[in-house]
C-alpha cells in the first residue's frame, strides 16, 4: 500500500525540495512507499481530502478544523515555535498610521490562504470594516500582494507574518506594518488519517526524535524547522474552537 502525503499549499516556495526530502525520510521510517501529492491551491487539496486521497497531511490550521471534526484525522505534531500570525501592511508612504485609519471602499490585496485572511479580517473590525465595505484583489502569492501595494493597485495587503518577514529587504523597506497579530495559538499541524491507526505511534516518536538524529536533523534543516512538538487532540480542539469564534 502506498501512503499519500500532502502539504498545505501555503508552504514557502523555497521549501519544495525540503518536502520531497521529508517524504523520502517518512517512507524510510514507516517502511512503506509514500507519495507526495502537491496541489496548486486549497480548493484542489480539499477535493482530494474529500475523496479520501490523503493519509498524512501538513495542514493549514483552517483545514485542520475540517480534518479533525469531519474526517477523523488525528493531530501528531507541529513544528517548534512556528505559530501562524497575520500582518496588515501598507505602502511605506501611505498616510495611514493604524488600522483605524483605513476607510470603507479600500482595496485590499489578499491570497487564498484561509487563516491569514480570517485573522486579517478580524483585525479590520476595530476600523468598522467588513467583507461588505472593502474590495479584494486576489493574489497568487505574498510577493504579488507586495507588488499590488507598491504599484498602488491596492491600499492595504494581508500577509502571513513569516511571508512578510521573508520578503526581500528592498521590498520590505517600501512597505509598512499597520498591525501584526499576536494570537499564538493558530498553527500548522501534521495529522494522520483514520486509516493510519497502527503506524501513528511509530510516526510520532520518529518525528519527535528527528532533531536528535543526524539524518533527521538534516531533513528538518531542509524544511526550515528546529524540531517537532507533540500535539494532543485537545490542543487542536482548542485551536479549532478559537478559530470558530473568529469566523464571522
Amino acid at each position: 500500500m502506498t501512503l499519500n502525503l500532502t502539504v498545505s499549499p501555503d508552504f514557502a516556495p523555497d521549501r519544495l525540495s525540503g518536502w520531497y526530502i521529508f517524504n523520502t525520510w517518512l517512507a524510510r521510517q514507516l517502511d512503506t512507499p509514500v507519495h507526495l501529492a502537491l496541489y496548486d491551491d486549497f480548493a484542489a487539496q480539499r477535493a482530494a481530502i474529500a475523496a479520501d486521497q490523503v493519509d498524512i497531511i501538513y495542514a493549514n490550521p483552517f483545514d485542520a478544523a475540517m480534518l479533525v471534526r469531519e474526517k477523523g484525522f488525528v493531530p501528531l505534531a507541529r513544528p517548534d515555535g512556528q505559530c501562524d500570525e497575520a500582518v496588515i501592511a501598507v505602502e511605506a508612504a501611505s498616510p495611514w498610521q493604524c488600522v483605524e485609519d483605513l476607510q470603507p471602499g479600500i482595496r485590499i490585496a489578499t491570497t487564498d490562504d484561509p487563516h491569514v485572511h480570517m485573522m486579517s479580517m478580524m483585525m479590520l473590525e476595530s476600523a468598522d470594516l467588513s467583507q461588505e465595505t472593502v474590495t479584494f484583489d486576489a493574489c497568487d502569492s505574498y510577493v504579488l500582494v507586495a507588488k499590488a501595494l507598491l504599484s498602488g493597485q491596492a491600499g492595504a495587503g494581508f500577509f502571513l507574518s513569516a511571508a512578510f518577514d521573508g520578503l526581500s529587504p528592498v521590498t520590505r523597506k517600501r512597505l509598512r506594518v499597520l498591525i501584526r497579530s499576536q494570537i499564538s495559538v493558530i498553527e500548522h499541524v501534521l495529522l494522520t488519517g483514520p486509516g493510519l491507526g497502527g503506524q501513528r505511534q511509530q510516526l510520532q516518536s520518529a518525528l519527535l526524535g528527528m532533531a536528535q538524529d543526524t539524518k533527521g536533523a538534516g531533513v528538518l534543516g531542509s524544511l526550515g524547522f528546529d524540531g517537532w512538538q507533540p500535539v494532543e487532540q485537545e490542543d487542536t480542539e482548542f485551536m479549532i474552537d478559537l478559530m470558530e469564534t473568529l469566523a464571522s
Binding site: E100, E125, S126, A127, D128, F238, L242, T245
Partner: peptide, 10 residues
C-alpha cells in the same frame, strides 16, 4: 470558550 477582540469605537 470566550475570545475577545478589539472593538470598533463606534
Amino acid at each position: 470558550t470566550s475570545v475577545r477582540r478589539k472593538p470598533s469605537r463606534r
